[in-house]
Design a protein around this nucleic acid. Sequence first.
DNA 1: CTCCTTGTTCGATTGTTATCGAAATACAAA
DNA 2: TTTGTATTTCGATAACAATCGAACAAGGAG
Lengths: 96, 96
Amino acid sequence: MNIEQSNKDNQLAEIFKTLSEPNRIRILRILDHSDRELTCSEVSEQLNISKSTVSYHFKALRHAGLTNTRQAAQTKYLSINEKTFKEYLPSFLESL
Amino acid sequence: MNIEQSNKDNQLAEIFKTLSEPNRIRILRILDHSDRELTCSEVSEQLNISKSTVSYHFKALRHAGLTNTRQAAQTKYLSINEKTFKEYLPSFLESL
DNA sequence: CTCCTTGTTCGATTGTTATCGAAATACAAA
DNA sequence: TTTGTATTTCGATAACAATCGAACAAGGAG
C-alpha cells in the first residue's frame, strides 16, 4: 500500500470519526433542514445538551471541514460545508 | 425529534464509528479489490497487524453489518455486505 | 494421537471521547 | 462602566477503543 493511499484512508477515517456521534448527525440535520445558519445556543436548546458540549461538537465538525463558521461579534454561526460532503459523502445530506 | 429518527441517527453513527479506523477501511478495500473472500491471517499479514487485532476488527465490521462471514472448518472467510453499503453509503465502495 | 494452522478470548496498557459545570473571555447594550 | 449574552476553555470523570502477546479452542494433516 502506498503512502498517499494511506493518508487518504486516515483522512476519510477522520471524517467518519467526526460523524460517529449521534448528536453531530443531529446538528447537521437541523442545519440542513432549517436552511439557515445556527448558533451554539440554539442547538444547545434544541438538542438539550449543554452549551459547552455543543461548542465542542462545533469545533470537531469545523475541524473535519464539514461545516463553515461565520463570526459576528460574540456570536458564531454554523453552516454546512457542501463541498466536503460532495467530495467524500455525496449522498449523505440527502439522506438526512 | 421523534424516537425512530433518533434510533436511525444512532445506527448511522454506529456505522460511522466502525469505519473511523483506517485499518478497517483498508480491510474493506482489499476485500473489494481482491474480489474474493479473505481470512484473518491473510489480512494480518497484508496489513502487518496482529491476528488478534484483525479478529477484533472483523468482529466490529460484522457487527455493524458491513461484512458477511462464511465459516469453513477453523477458517472464517470475510466478504463485503453490499446491501448495507447500498443502503447507507451508496458511494463508498466505488471510492475505494 | 500429535502437530500445525486458524481464529477467539483474556488481561493489560495506553490513549481518546463525550459530557458537565464553573470559570474565563469577548462583545454589545444600557 | 456595569450588566447580560454567546461562546470557549478548564478540570474532572466515566466510558470506550485499539493494540499486543499469551493462552485457549477447534479442526485438518500426517
